[in-house]
C-alpha cells in the first residue's frame, strides 16, 4: 500500500508551479476518506482505507509545511490547514468505544470520583447537619420560623396541624400517578443538585447556603413531627428515599466544593490547571449523583406510597445507605490508579 506515485512520464522534479497539480489528488482523496470515516464507525472502513488514513494525513501535513514556506495562495493554505487539523483530530482524538467506557464508569470512575472528594463530603455532611440543628432550634423557639423556612413546601403541614393530619400525610397511599410523581421528583431534584454543583465555582459560598437551607428544611419538619410524638414514623417516611437523596445532595455539594476550592486555592499548580483537574473528576461524580437521584425518585414516588410499614421503610433506607457506602468506600473493583483517563 503506497500513495499514488508522481506522474512518471517526466523525470521527478520539484517545482512550485506543479506543486498543487501534483498533490491535489491526494488532498481530495484524504478529504473524501475523512468524510466517510467521520460518518461511519472505524470498524466499517476497509483495511486498505485504515492503512491509507495516516499516510494521507502525513502527506497533507507535509504539503502544508511546503506550502507555508513557498506558496502564497491564502485559500490553499487555509484549506490545507483545515484538512490537516481535521485529520489530526480524527487520528489523535480517538476515544475508544462507548460500551467499555460506560462499564468503566460504573466499575471504577464513579466510585473513585466519589472517594476522591471524601473530605468535602464530610464537610457538606456537617453543613447539612448544622442546617438541620438550626432549623430544629428555630422552630422550637418560635413556630413562626416554620413558615419562613419551609414556605410553600409545607403542603398544609405546620406546627398548628393536628397529629392526625400529620400522620395522614405520612401514610397517604393515594395509588394514582405514582410513577409520574417519581419522574417529577427526579427531574426537580436533579436540577437542584446540578445547580448546587455548578454554584461551587463561585468559591463554594452559594453551595454551602443551598445545602444548609436543605438541612434547615429537614430540621424544621423533624421538629414539628417530633413535637407531636410522630418522630419514629416521620424518620421512617423520610429515610426510605432520604438516605439516597440526601447522600446525593451532599455529594453534589462536595463536588461543587471541590471545584470551588480548586479555583480559590490552586496550590502548586496554576489556577487554570487546578480547575481543569478538579472539574473532570467532579463532573464524573455529578453523573453519579444524577443516577442516585433517579433511584431516590423511584423510591420516593413509588416505594414510599406502596410500602406502609415503618420497619420496612427503615430497612430499605438503611440498606440503600449501606449499599452506597460500600460501593463508594469499601468495594474497590479495580485497584486505585489503574489505567484511568
Amino acid at each position: 500500500m503506497t500513495l499514488a506515485p508522481r506522474p512518471s512520464a517526466e523525470p521527478a522534479m520539484q517545482s512550485l508551479s506543479s506543486f498543487r497539480a501534483e498533490r491535489a489528488e491526494q488532498w481530495l482523496e484524504f478529504e473524501t476518506l475523512l468524510d466517510r470515516a467521520e460518518k461511519k464507525s472505524p470498524r466499517r472502513l476497509t483495511e486498505e482505507e485504515l492503512v491509507k488514513l495516516p499516510l494521507l494525513y502525513r502527506a497533507t501535513l507535509s504539503s502544508l509545511s511546503v506550502a507555508r514556506a513557498s506558496v502564497l495562495d491564502a485559500q490553499l493554505l487555509d484549506y490545507l490547514q483545515a484538512l490537516s487539523l481535521r485529520g489530526y483530530h480524527y487520528l489523535y482524538g480517538a476515544r475508544g468505544q462507548l460500551g467499555p467506557r460506560v462499564a468503566r464508569f460504573f466499575i471504577a470512575d464513579w466510585p473513585a470520583a466519589a472517594r476522591v472528594i471524601w473530605r468535602e463530603t464530610l464537610v457538606m455532611l456537617a453543613v447539612l447537619t448544622l442546617g438541620a440543628v438550626a432549623g430544629w432550634r428555630l422552630v422550637a423557639l418560635d413556630p413562626v420560623w416554620f413558615d419562613a423556612i419551609v414556605g410553600e413546601m409545607a403542603q398544609g403541614r405546620g406546627p398548628a396541624s393536628s397529629a392526625a393530619d400529620l400522620r395522614a400525610i405520612l401514610y397517604a397511599g393515594d395509588g394514582e400517578f405514582l410513577s409520574g410523581f417519581a419522574a417529577y421528583l427526579f427531574t426537580h431534584n436533579a436540577q437542584i443538585a446540578l445547580l448546587a454543583f455548578a454554584l461551587g465555582f463561585a468559591f463554594v459560598v452559594p453551595t454551602v447556603l443551598l445545602v444548609a437551607t436543605n438541612g434547615a428544611l429537614l430540621g424544621a419538619m423533624c421538629q414539628v413531627y417530633f413535637a407531636k410524638g410522630l418522630g419514629w414514623e416521620f424518620v421512617g417516611w423520610l429515610s426510605i428515599h432520604g438516605t439516597t437523596e440526601l447522600f446525593a445532595i451532599v455529594l453534589a455539594g462536595a463536588a461543587g466544593m471541590k471545584i470551588g476550592t480548586a479555583v480559590a486555592f490552586p496550590g502548586a499548580k496554576s489556577r487554570i490547571d487546578a480547575a481543569a483537574d478538579a472539574g473532570r473528576s467532579a463532573g464524573i461524580a455529578m453523573v453519579g449523583v444524577v443516577v442516585m437521584l433517579l433511584i431516590a425518585g423511584l423510591l420516593e414516588g413509588i416505594g414510599r406510597q406502596t410500602i406502609q410499614s415503618d420497619s420496612a421503610r427503615y430497612a430499605i433506607g438503611a440498606t440503600m445507605l449501606a449499599l452506597w457506602c460500600g460501593y463508594y468506600y469499601f468495594l474497590r473493583l479495580l485497584p486505585a490508579g489503574s489505567n484511568r483517563r
Binding site: E31, D73, L76, D78, Y79, A82
Partner: peptide, 10 residues
C-alpha cells in the same frame, strides 16, 4: 475548523 473546500487555482 476552517475552510473545508479547495478553491480553484488562480
Amino acid at each position: 475548523t476552517g475552510k473545508q473546500k479547495l478553491g480553484e487555482d488562480l
